[in-house]
């Protein structure tokens, strides 16, 4: 039974849930919210391949499951390859008449660790081979499931359990790996960034990514109260602040053409974002200044790319 749709302004959202309650995500988890919204946008005609991580562990403890759509978890590092098999398998089975023709989208779900680090080879391969699948990266900027260890998506200056702030260190000393740009470099038809702070934008992008033929990638900012040490009622606000400060801009790249979805004439200072989270608490003014400069620079680069395509 399809659920009803409820109208929010000009957006329609189904009341149906494909990720059932009873999961074990932490209270106030931005990743859980983003995943739930993504599932609403995708609907029931999907097969999900999930990497190890919070999205998997919190939804599938035997003998129960939160999944109301077909779902498979194999390992941490290989989700794009598992998805490749699902996509190619379905396609050939339908072509050979061994499975009835149906419109089924294969969707890969993984965290930032499963995407930017251990799974990047499989992901790059699947993009390059042009599989018709959607890859959703839920970026909570560390390996949360295993206890807040740093990943290559952890932002500069954040304290994690394997890059802790201490007398001699500010925590993470490298800049966040820009996976959306790496996805763009594969010349795939659709790349987007999204955030549960902007739920309709998120759902529209996931839906678009699901509808597009060929590989699509949506990188979803996923505030994590446990790992970021922020209040449990702040995930949405922090999601919005990340956009308003330019730290995590919302944009789409369709067939190589950049579009900024939310463009603020003036960005808020990064400090407003950083001060909401315990992981940045140790940062001194000079480090905050360095982050500000970096954000300004990256934002300008992005705007320049967008400008190339504005007519």
């Amino acid at each position: 039974m399809e659920g009803q749709s409820i109208k929010f302004g000009k957006n329609f959202v189904t009341t149906e849930e494909f990720l059932a309650q009873g999961h074990t995500f932490c209270t106030g988890c931005g990743e859980a919210l983003a995943l739930r919204l993504a599932c609403k946008a995708l609907g029931r005609h999907v097969i999900i391949a999930n990497a190890t991580g919070c999205t998997e562990v919190c939804t599938s403890p035997l003998p129960v499951t939160s999944w109301r759509v077909p779902w498979i978890h194999t390992l941490f590092e290989n989700t794009a390859a598992t998805a490749s098999g699902i996509e190619a398998g379905l396609k050939i089975l339908m072509k050979k008449g061994k499975t009835p023709e149906k419109n089924i989208k294969c969707v890969a779900v993984a965290g930032d660790g499963g995407t930017t680090d251990i799974g990047i080879q499989a992901l790059s391969g699947a993009f390059e081979r042009n599989h018709d699948f959607l890859y959703l990266c839920f970026d909570n900027e560390a390996y949360m499931n295993t206890g807040i260890q740093r990943s290559s998506a952890t932002p500069y200056g954040a304290s994690t359990t394997t890059a802790p702030a201490g007398k001699l260190s500010i925590g993470q000393t490298t800049w966040k790996k820009n996976l959306p740009e790496i996805a763009v470099a594969h010349n795939i038809p659709y790349v987007a960034t999204a955030s549960p702070g902007y739920p309709f934008d998120l759902m529209n992008k996931v839906k678009k990514g699901g509808d597009i033929k060929g590989p699509a990638y949506v990188h979803i900012f996923s505030p994590c109260p446990t790992g970021w040490r922020h209040a449990t009622d702040l995930a949405i606000e922090i999601g919005r602040l990340a956009v308003e400060t330019g730290i995590f801009p919302l944009y789409e790249v369709e067939n190589g053409r950049y579009k900024l979805n939310i463009d603020r004439p003036k960005l808020k200072p990064v400090e407003e974002y950083l001060k909401t989270q315990g992981r940045f608490r140790h940062l001194l003014d000079e480090e905050i200044e360095k982050i500000q400069e970096h954000v300004n620079e990256e934002y300008a680069k992005l705007k320049a790319k967008v400008a190339c395509f504005s007519t």
Binding site: L75, A81, I86, G89, I92, A122
Partner: peptide, 27 residues
């Protein structure tokens, strides 16, 4: 009449086989 998938590693070869077998393909 088969899908020949030139994967980027053996790790992905077996992972792809797993995905394909899970939708019912002879792999």
């Amino acid at each position: 009449d088969a899908a020949y998938i030139p994967v980027e590693s053996e790790h992905s070869a077996m992972s792809t086989c797993v995905g394909a077998a899970a939708v019912g393909a002879r792999t």
